[in-house]
Design a protein around this nucleic acid. Structure first.
Length: 376
RNA sequence: GGUGGGGUGGCCGAGUGGCUAAUGGCAGCAGACUGUAAAUCUGCCGAGCUUUGCUCUACGUAGGUUCGAAUCCUACCCCCACCA
């Protein structure tokens, strides 16, 4: 039920098929983020048409609203959201990091002050597993301790060691819940900040608690410079099991996907596509487009002439600009949709290139085009 | 014709003697956003310059009072309301 078939490698880049209870994922792939059980602003059919094969939900956020009991009563996350394909839930570990002013970390777990109503909430490895199991996604992520990109060695080590101890507890609790192992799998998250030895120790400790059906790399693109992220991936790559999917959490921007794929990453997720989309910023091969700019006012061209998304194949920049300036919500949706398609397509194009053994030239060409346009 | 109200930077709109090149908002410009507390946030937004500051010009127009005026006075022009 949780299989990973590595079809072909080209350099470090990999093309594979991940089989999950709700379907298969052709990798490399970008996974849109649907924190609250919806990819912000988009209909599931639109997300599907954009080529998304798997989307995320968030444990912490769904626990607060509507509550996992509600989701379970309404048939579980798939039926609740009507998304029929694979899903993955993040554990709330990222909220340990991003809701810094609302939380208190102890060995037992994390006390949160709900950002919704101020009530006290507690999340522990066990609790996170219970929630994720109740939500019912195909993949449940371990509850980890993320530290900022600029974290000191001591802090990075503390977060990494704690994540490892929590991972063991996650594994134990998840095994009790998902005893037949048929409907949900648990993926661990490698931490260790920007320190090579910590990363390798984290990976070693993680593998020691296995076997796993997939492995995530967390704690990147949280403030560290891009070259540092690349270095960490370079250092980690050779030590990662070849026959397991690798998921780089929270990444990324278009160029990050290409660089990540080049370093052996199979799966990505990132909120930037939808968040930037809502903010009127579109990724195109001609550079970033701020759709609100006056220069788009009379522009009859699509956002990106080379894009096959439902936004570009139909609407002009002038229309999109109008929607943004007039605060018509369709504008946010259309640009979000385009951005998702833009990232999904990178996965598709990279996959084709890998399968045809021309990944490095595709990558070089893509980067040259994209980065050149970015600097204009 | 009379009475009352009003004319402020691209627009709307505060301000009623110095702390005012003038609060806000809109529009405009630039930027940020990476496992979503974000349809959000930040900066700029009269002109010019030798740009951590300086110099001009500016609150309908023209005068005046005052050390000092968008703010007070006079005249004029225009707009709105009501009355004739």
């Amino acid at each position: 039920m949780f299989e990973f078939d590595l079809t072909r490698t080209d350099g470090q880049a990999r093309a594979a098929t991940l089989t999950l209870p709700h379907g298969t994922v052709q990798t490399p792939a970008f996974m849109p983020v649907g924190t609250l059980g919806a990819v912000r602003g988009l209909h599931p059919l639109e997300v599907e048409r954009a080529g998304a094969q798997i989307i995320l939900g968030n444990t912490y956020h769904l626990h607060l609203r509507p509550g996992e009991d509600v989701v379970a009563a309404l048939g579980g996350l798939h039926r609740f959201t009507t998304w029929p394909k694979p899903m993955l839930t993040d554990s709330g570990g990222f909220q340990v990091f991003s809701l810094e002013t609302f939380r208190k970390i102890s060995e037992q777990g994390v006390e949160f002050t709900s950002h919704v109503d101020g009530s006290a909430r507690f999340l522990s490895p066990e609790k996170a597993m219970e929630i994720e199991w109740t939500l019912g996604a195909d993949i449940a992520m371990a509850f980890d301790h993320v530290v900022p990109g600029g974290a000191s060695r001591d802090l990075a080590e503390e977060g990494m060691e704690r994540s490892l101890r929590w991972l063991e507890r996650c594994r134990t609790r998840h095994a009790e819940l998902a005893d037949d192992g048929a409907t949900q799998t648990l993926w661990p998250i490698v931490q260790g900040g920007t320190y090579q030895d910590l990363r390798l120790r984290s990976l070693e400790g993680t593998l020691g608690l296995g076997p796993w059906t997939g492995i995530a790399i967390g704690g990147l693109s949280v403030g560290e410079p891009k070259p540092v992220m690349h270095r960490v991936l370079d250092e980690l790559g050779p030590a990662l099991p070849r026959d397991r999917p690798r998921y780089l959490m929270g990444v990324g921007f278009p160029e990050d996907l290409v660089e990540g794929i080049a370093r052996g990453v199979d799966l990505f997720d990132c909120v930037a596509a939808t968040r930037n989309g809502r903010h009127g910023s579109a990724w195109t091969m001609g550079g970033r487009v701020n759709i609100r700019k006056t220069t788009n006012r009379m522009d009859d061209q699509p956002l990106d002439p080379g894009c096959d998304c439902d936004t570009c194949s139909r609407f002009s920049r002038g229309y999109l600009r109008h929607l943004f300036v007039a605060e018509e919500m369709l504008g946010l949706r259309l640009v979000s949709l385009h951005n998702i398609r833009f990232l999904v397509r990178i996965g598709e194009q990279a996959r084709s290139a890998i399968l045809e053994n021309r990944f490095s030239s595709w990558r070089a060409e893509w980067m040259a085009r994209y980065l050149q346009s970015e600097t204009v």
